[in-house]
Amino acid sequence: MAEFKKFDQRNWVKTNLSYKKDTGSWAWILHRITGIALLGYLFMHIYSLSPLSQGKEAFDTFIAAYTTPFFMALEWFLFAFVLFHSLNGVRIVLVDWADGAKYHKALYRYSIVIGVVMFLAMGYVMFSHEIHKLFK
């Protein structure tokens, strides 16, 4: 907080990166990145589910590509984006409405811990069937 850098419009990426970041600024920047990515995914999701209108055969052939382990892994990593945006969103609501400014750094750490646990739990839900198949 000691020095104030003038914002340079032409090199805003460089200027942004040069700021020293604490939990709050990381939360802010990651919330934006995950938010934009999730909106992009929502557009893709609506597009990729539209063959539902063309009946069973069209949809099942189309969706088969998304049941491969590669796409399942991508969907799992997408859940990391969902979790970050969700838990940090709850953190933002607590900061706004529940005096969270006093404990927002602790909230950030709890979010990360809860997020990692939920990410691993979802990994189990998604891949348990594949794992069971391996040992049959």
């Binding site: 539902l52 969706i63 969902v82 969700s86 969103g89 409405w97 839900v125 069937h129």
Partner: peptide, 29 residues
């Protein structure tokens, strides 16, 4: 904020339901 809080619940529920079995989220039936 209100929509966000609703989406947290629905979104995580959606993920669990769609991946509970390999069929639940990826078949027409």
């Amino acid at each position: 904020r209100v929509t966000g809080l609703i989406l947290v619940v629905v979104m995580i529920g959606h993920y669990i339901l769609m991946h509970y079995t390999p069929e639940s989220g990826h078949t027409y039936d």
